[in-house]
């Protein structure tokens, strides 16, 4: 049998059962690269649970546990308090949860953790739906994307996670994208070094749920930023830095045409979508740079 334990290079083994081109797996590898092994990682049900392996075999060479869908943040708070009670101030406690586990069912628990100021690094990998249970809509699903619970397309826009965290005056929060690994890793490091709660929100192209070509994962991540669908920024000690602003927004077509989930969008709707994306981008930049 293939000796995965010996042959894997990093904390996360090779041969993990994520789909080809999965952005979540790439993000996880970046997270482990930066954080090292002095960590306790908490992962709820969802695609990231694939990383944890099954039964007696684990894909992760670090201390961690699978929690429940809505309590990643609460479980992290308990672990942090326990380490603090033992005088351990070096271990990083990290939550790694999907958009459903974060923005929907887990929002209360995350809000509690941030408000209390618990020193936990929370990462939301956002593939914009409940992927592991079969591509159902979440509150992070974007306008007009088709899912199995909203096949005609979601009629409302995405919930603003970092906005919610900023309303808590979180010490550090940032968005990131997989097409800029250097920026992503820098942010993971900053979040780790934050003395208090920190939050990273990473857009995760998901070939299975977005019905895109596995080879397009990075292209999509880049297109999201260049079209203004995804804005890269940081919130640090109450100050916002927008990390990147495209000189000119690319047409939304460059992003949605690569994804089957927008296949049914009509030309009329595309125009509306373009308007909404542009307006929301401009409003966001104006608000952030105020």
């Amino acid at each position: 049998m293939y000796e995965i334990i010996k042959d894997s290079k990093g904390t996360l083994n090779h041969g993990i059962s994520a789909c080809a081109g999965c952005g979540m797996e790439l993000l996880a590898r970046c997270v482990f690269d930066v954080l090292g092994q002095d960590i306790i990682i908490v992962i709820p049900p969802g695609c990231a649970a694939l990383l944890t392996g099954m039964g007696t075999e684990s894909g992760i060479k670090a201390a961690g546990m699978m929690c429940n869908l809505e309590n990643t943040a609460s479980t992290c708070s308990g672990i942090r308090a326990s380490l603090d009670a033992q005088g351990n101030d070096h271990t990083t406690v990290v939550g790694f949860a999907g958009d459903g586990g974060t923005l929907d069912i887990g929002l209360q628990s995350l809000s509690g953790m941030i408000e209390r100021g618990d020193k936990v690094l929370y990462i939301c990998y956002d593939n914009e739906a409940y992927m592991n249970t079969g591509i159902q809509s979440s509150s992070a699903t974007p306008f007009l994307a088709s899912t199995t619970t909203q096949p005609a397309g979601k009629p409302t826009v995405k919930k603003d996670l970092i906005g919610i965290a900023m309303a808590h005056e979180i010490p550090y929060a940032a968005t990131a994208s997989l097409h800029n690994i250097a920026d992503l890793k820098k942010k993971i490091q900053k979040a780790k070094d934050t003395d208090g709660p920190s939050l990273l929100h990473v857009l995760i192209p998901c070939p299975t749920g977005w019905r895109s070509d596995p080879a397009d994962t990075i292209t999509l991540a880049r297109a999201a930023v260049n079209t203004g669908v995804w804005v890269l920024y940081e919130y640090e000690d109450g100050e916002v830095t927008v990390n990147y602003k495209p000189k000119e927004l690319k047409p939304i077509e460059e992003y949605i045409s690569l994804q089957g989930r927008f296949k049914k969008v009509t030309d009329e709707e595309k125009k509306e979508m373009q308007k909404i994306v542009k307006k929301s981008y401009e409003r966001k930049i104006a608000k952030l740079e105020k």
């Binding site: 099954m54 201390a63 546990m65």
Partner: peptide, 12 residues
Amino acid sequence: LNPEDPMFVSNV
């Protein structure tokens, strides 16, 4: 849960 003697608890 102990980073010095890591194990993954409670997976599927």
